[in-house]
């Protein structure tokens, strides 16, 4: 969230809900190592819900991907 300070609390909450929804469809047959933490879906949901440091990083990662998906950046050459 580049403009984190500029977005309203309401929008921030909506974005958080969006991320929670997206994590909600994560398959249980998948886990993720984020730094020193090994997380399953429930762990990720909890971190985002709590908005702790890991949760904020998960939110940023999801929103960054969505931005690049929308802008078409993911189809440009690496």
């Amino acid at each position: 969230m580049n403009n984190e300070l500029e977005i309203s609390t309401e929008l921030k909450e909506q974005l958080k809900q969006l991320v929670l929804e997206r994590i909600g469809v994560m398959p249980n047959t998948l886990s993720i190592a984020v730094g020193s933490e090994a997380l399953n879906k429930q762990d990720m949901l909890r971190h985002v819900q709590d908005e702790d440091e890991t949760g904020k990083q998960i939110i940023e990662m999801e929103l960054s991907f969505l931005r690049d998906l929308a802008s078409g950046a993911i189809y440009a050459n690496a």
Partner: peptide, 11 residues
């Protein structure tokens, strides 16, 4: 510059 992420299979 950010977390190195690795997806993996719990099994």
């Amino acid at each position: 510059t950010r977390k190195f992420i690795c997806g993996y299979t719990p099994d």
